[in-house]
Write a protein that binds this DNA or RNA. Structure first.
Lengths: 197, 197
DNA sequence: GCCTTCATGTAAGAAGTTACATGATTGT
DNA sequence: ACAATCATGTAACTTCTTACATGAAGGC
């Protein structure tokens, strides 16, 4: 009877600020999209379902396009169910964590070692770029929201916590990539003496 | 025309050792399941597709049950396509990384702080258990496969690399959980003086 | 005799992506 | 004029999960 995971994602956004479906879909690209994403074609039907369950309501607002523009906000029940869900342990660790990159590493012994090393290096650079982005967000948070990020009953605290998770995650992946590149280089392609070239 | 991600997961397993669909499905629970999983109802049709594409073949083996038991192995083409795929950079970082736990944290400011802290502590313990399991696998690898794990052209090297990724990942999550628990405790529920109870 | 493991498949449904379809407002 | 952004929806398709269905071999 309660909402789906996507429903709770939408409620989590609406609890911060009432929004249109379009804005929700945009927010689910970045930065919340770093841990939960959805396309607008999923958002609109889900909003209708949440409304049918009495967890959100909307008012029609003037705006562009051929249809009514609707701004959604959570109901009292929506807020309390969201809070209850957030404090309930998830069924179990999925242990799933589908990761196509790790799957490639799993078969990397069949690939050309130089191609494999280059692939890992490229991925590491992508993670470095991501880390830089997270660090900027953290700095911004610490500058403008210094008071709220210490209070776990504010949305700013929750934002900060997820950004910290991102930073920690990227740092770990980068360190592992560097380790792996060193290993591939050391064990396979005994580096031809480049000093003569 | 090439295989799907699941197809490459199956090929990656079959490149190590020919197996039945049942055994593949079991392997996709643990330990490969830590980064790619599938149920048997996905495996059997996928094997048929791979065979139609000429990437695997099977021989019928005697065994239990009402139907033929089939042992699959990759073809020459299957192996080479797997190697090529493994060395090719994935389209891009998905940035998606769907994580229901982080989504809960994102709305944790609406939850009871004590419930939230307890939830995080429980999750941390689950990750600690996982870390212990990974460390055992690593120790086992270092004991019995010491020679191969230094050579990036062996499957043992690839196994070792993925286990190291797991260890690094779990260590990061545990550290972040501990940080978060401290923050929730410090900011919200100024701990009642327990020494008098 | 009964339960577990091994073994292979189909069917129904949920979840998610990509493509189709429409149209006003705003900035260049 | 043209393009981008804002805005809302539907349809078709892929992927994945859960449930249904069958049955032999081996251990208790």
């Amino acid at each position: 009877m309660a909402a789906t995971t996507l429903g709770f994602a939408l409620l989590g956004l609406l609890a911060r600020r009432p929004m249109t479906g379009y804005q929700l879909a945009a927010a689910l690209k970045t930065p919340i999209g770093y841990f939960w994403s959805a396309s607008h074609s999923q958002v609109y039907p889900e909003l209708a379902r949440l409304e049918a369950q009495g967890l959100v309501r909307h008012e029609v607002i003037g705006g562009p396009g051929p249809r009514d523009n609707k701004r959604y906000h959570p109901t009292q029940r929506g807020r309390s169910e969201l809070g209850a869900w957030a404090g309930t342990p998830a069924p179990a660790m999925p242990a799933d964590n589908r990761d196509e990159f790790l799957l490639k590493i799993y078969s990397s012994w069949l690939a050309d070692p130089r191609a494999a090393a280059a692939m890992v290096a490229r991925r590491r650079d992508e993670h470095r770029a991501m880390l830089d982005r997270y660090r900027e967000i953290r700095a911004e948070n610490e500058r403008t929201r210094a008071a709220e990020i210490d209070d776990p009953t504010t949305p700013e605290f929750a934002n900060y916590a997820t950004v910290m998770a991102g930073i920690s995650y990227e740092e770990h992946v980068i360190a592992w990539c560097d380790w792996l590149i060193g290993r591939i280089g050391a064990g396979a392609a005994p580096p031809a003496d480049d000093s003569r070239r």
